[in-house]
Computed example of a mutant assay.
Amino acid sequence: MKRDNNSRMAQFLLLGLSGYPELQPALFALFLSMYLATVFGNLLIILAVISDSHLHTPMYFFLSNLSFVDICFTSTIVPKMLVNIQTQHKDISYRECLTQVYFFMIFAGMDNFLLTIMAYDRFVAICHPLNYISIMNPQLCGLLVLISWIIIFWDALLHLLLIIRLTFTRGTQIPHFFCDLPPLLQVASSDTRINNAVLYMTTAFLGVFPVTGILFSYSQIVSSLMKMSCSASKSKAFSTCASHLCMVFLYYGTGLVEYLSFTFPHSSQASMITSVMYTVVTPMLNPFIYSLRNKDVKGALGRFLSRTASCP
Rank of each mutant, 00 (worst) to 15 (best):
C241D: 15
P210E: 04
H176F: 15
G142C: 00
I152A: 03
C141Q: 04
N137R: 05
S235H: 06
S224M: 15
L160S: 08
F205S: 04
S224R: 15
F264R: 09
G253L: 11
M272L: 04
L245C: 12
S235A: 09
S235L: 04
S190R: 11
P210L: 02
I150S: 07
F177W: 05
I163A: 08
N137W: 02
Y259F: 15
L225C: 13
Y259E: 15
L166W: 07
L199P: 00
E258D: 12
F178C: 14
V276C: 07
F238P: 05
S268N: 09
V208M: 14
T172G: 01
S134P: 01
S271F: 00
C230A: 15
F209V: 12
F177H: 03
L166M: 01
G213R: 10
C241L: 12
L260Y: 14
C246R: 12
L146M: 09
S229R: 13
K234P: 13
I194N: 05
I174W: 04
Q173V: 06
V248H: 06
L260V: 14
D180P: 01
F216V: 11
Y200H: 11
V222H: 05
G142P: 02
S190F: 14
S261H: 05
S190G: 11
T212D: 11
A237M: 01
R170A: 05
Y218E: 02
K227C: 10
T240E: 08
I135P: 04
F238Q: 13
L181V: 05
T263N: 09
L206C: 04
D155I: 08
T274R: 04
P183G: 10
L256D: 15
A188T: 03
L157K: 14
P183V: 08
T279F: 14
I214R: 00
P138L: 12
S223K: 07
A242C: 12
S229I: 10
P175V: 15
R170N: 09
C230S: 15
V145S: 02
S224H: 11
V248Y: 03
I194H: 01
R170G: 03
S189E: 14
V222S: 13
H176T: 15
V208A: 09
S189M: 11
P138C: 11
V198H: 06
S229K: 09
I133F: 13
M228Q: 12
S217C: 11
R165Q: 14
Y252M: 10
G253H: 07
T203Q: 04
L181W: 03
W149S: 06
I214K: 00
A232R: 10
F262A: 01
I194G: 02
A270E: 08
K236E: 15
A156F: 10
S239N: 12
V187F: 02
G171S: 14
I221R: 02
D180Y: 09
F209W: 12
Y251S: 15
L162A: 00
V145L: 01
S190A: 14
S267A: 11
Q139Y: 03
T192H: 13
S239K: 14
V198S: 01
N195S: 15
H176A: 13
Y218N: 05
A188Y: 02
I163S: 07
L162P: 02
D155W: 09
Q173P: 01
W149F: 02
H159N: 05
